[in-house]
């Protein structure tokens, strides 16, 4: 699947999102990210973006849920 988002989640603390298009919303308790086909909503607590580049983003914090919104 060309251009689909790749999520690498390590435990409950770290998530690496590759192939994303942009940040839609970002707060302490949730992050919404636009990808090619859908939006991904990561909710939790004390979420922080360690770094992000044009196609990769690393989120750390306490992750409760990952939801796909289409």
């Amino acid at each position: 699947m060309l251009g689909a988002a790749v999520l690498t989640v390590t435990g409950q603390r770290e998530a690496l999102i590759a192939n994303y298009k942009g940040i839609l919303e970002y707060e302490d308790s949730f992050i919404r990210v636009q990808t090619k086909n859908c939006r991904i909503r990561i909710s939790g607590a004390r979420l922080a973006i360690d770094y992000y580049t044009n196609d990769e983003m690393k989120i750390t914090g306490h992750i409760d849920a990952i939801q796909y919104e289409s």
Partner: peptide, 12 residues
Amino acid sequence: GSHEILIWNLTP
């Protein structure tokens, strides 16, 4: 991101 300016330790 699209201008390739690196940003780190982003917190709201």
